[in-house]
Amino acid sequence: MELSTRTFRVTRADLVRYAGASGDFNPIHWNDRTATTVGLPGVIAHGMFTMALVGRAVTEWAGAPDAVVEFGVRFTRPVVVPDDDEGTEITVDAVVKEVTEAGLTRLDVTARCGDEKILSQARAIVRTTG
């Protein structure tokens, strides 16, 4: 399995679109006043949006949109998304930890924003045969 690094640019527009599609309208994901009031540096991405981007990397690596058997993460650092056209960037890498006889591949995933890891214990099991 070719595990090339995937990068995803995240802007405020992406957060608004995700809020609408997911129904998660928590204002910390679109309103700087609310975000700073609760002690955040600014608007942050939905954890589940970050996880969805990691899921894109996993399904692309697996080569099939329906290959994911298990997928779990721990959210350790918020992804701050500035109010400009650049936004921020998330980088996703993985290593293969195990390939089972049943045709399952276990991946350990690393997701970073800048130099900081934003997830821990990020793991996926994907079906890689038949």
């Binding site: 954890g47 589940m48 996880m51 949109p65 329906d66 994911v68 058997v69 298990e70 997928f71 779990g72 993460v73 721990r74 959210f75 214990q121």
Partner: peptide, 11 residues
């Protein structure tokens, strides 16, 4: 949100 995990029988 601390952790999130999915275990699929099918998509």
């Amino acid at each position: 949100h601390g952790d999130q995990r999915f275990a699929y029988t099918r998509p």
